[in-house]
């Protein structure tokens, strides 16, 4: 059972071509290298074809099929995006949203990690928390956004509370799995050699839990984004969500799509580039996986 995102995480973490750049020694290796290159080329061609196809459809339908206010052409969106960036609106509103996420998610991570470890180590605590964790994960974030907006009004605390409540179960669930799967063979080995507890945690437990922690961060982070924006859509006076609501209320499809795409691009950038770099650094020890 693949949760799509988790799966992609491991795949991309396992990438990294150790063989690239080495001189091919034999004829066979040379052939394999050539084939690899051809494969890579065709992959990019098909990928590119995908982009051309979709943007073509978009351009075509906005020119011939529907009015501009329903689907503005790609170029208009680009122009609007550029306007948002150059006017400084981007920095103001992204900053406002990011701040809420940073505070909310840090709290969510601490709480989630604590509960997750407790649940993983003890069946009683697992029973105590498991229903709530399940409920919090399956309830639409909107609910918590509405309740926290009602309780805290437009103040700063509301969004953060919403982010914490929706984010921590994801952290907890991932850590439960990690703690439960703890490598008994390695901890036993350490015990037979009288390795100290601090060293055990640093060299065995943390490296083992790392993938679970990264998955937790990934999930929790993407939830935090969505909930933080949602609080702004429901009742905020700054932030990405607030701008999206403004464009929505004035029926400006171009403005709305621009903000949505910028939001999306930025989230993707943080997740794929910033976080991925950390993950890759951490997983240097993994042997190359050939697909």
């Amino acid at each position: 059972m693949v949760h799509p995102k988790g799966d992609m995480a491991t795949k991309s973490a396992a990438k990294g071509d150790l063989k690239a750049g080495r001189e091919p020694a034999t004829d066979q290796e040379q052939k394999a290298l050539l084939k690899k290159r051809a494969d890579r080329r065709s992959r990019w061609i098909w990928r590119l074809a995908g982009y051309v196809f979709f943007i073509g459809i978009w351009q075509f339908s906005s020119t011939y099929l529907v009015e501009d206010f329903i689907l503005p052409p790609p170029l208009t969106i680009l122009e609007t995006m550029q306007e948002i960036v150059t006017s400084g609106l981007l920095v103001t509103h992204f900053g406002a949203t990011l701040e809420k996420i940073a505070i909310g998610f840090s709290l969510a991570f601490i709480i989630g990690a604590f509960i997750g470890i407790l649940m993983g180590m003890n069946r009683w605590w697992e029973a105590f928390f498991s229903d709530w964790v399940l409920i919090l994960m399956t309830t639409p974030g909107l609910i918590f956004v509405l309740v926290s907006t009602m309780v805290f009004g437009l103040s700063y605390i509301g969004p953060i509370v919403a982010v914490v409540i929706t984010g921590f179960p994801y952290v907890a669930v991932n850590l439960v799995e990690g703690v439960k799967a703890a490598p008994k063979d390695l901890t036993d080995m350490a015990r037979s050699y009288n390795v100290s507890r601090a060293r055990l945690i640093r060299h065995v437990i943390i490296p083992f839990l790392a993938p679970f922690i990264f998955t937790a961060i990934r999930y929790g982070f993407s939830i935090a984004w969505k909930v933080a924006t949602l609080t702004e859509v429901i009742g905020g006076n700054e932030g990405i969500g607030f701008m999206m609501r403004r464009e929505f209320q004035s029926f400006s499809m171009a403005g709305f799509l621009s903000w949505a795409l910028l939001f999306f691009a930025f989230a993707l950038f943080l997740e794929r580039i910033v976080l991925q770099r950390q993950i890759d650094r951490f997983f240097r020890w993994r042997p190359e996986v050939t697909s």
Binding site: D185, Y193, R199, H203, W285
Partner: peptide, 19 residues
């Protein structure tokens, strides 16, 4: 041990130093 039980995330030298 029956299986080597090395820490996969540490180098060979660090595995020896671990104990």
């Amino acid at each position: 041990f029956q299986a080597a039980r090395l820490l996969p995330w540490r180098t060979v030298m660090d595995n020896l130093l671990f104990v």
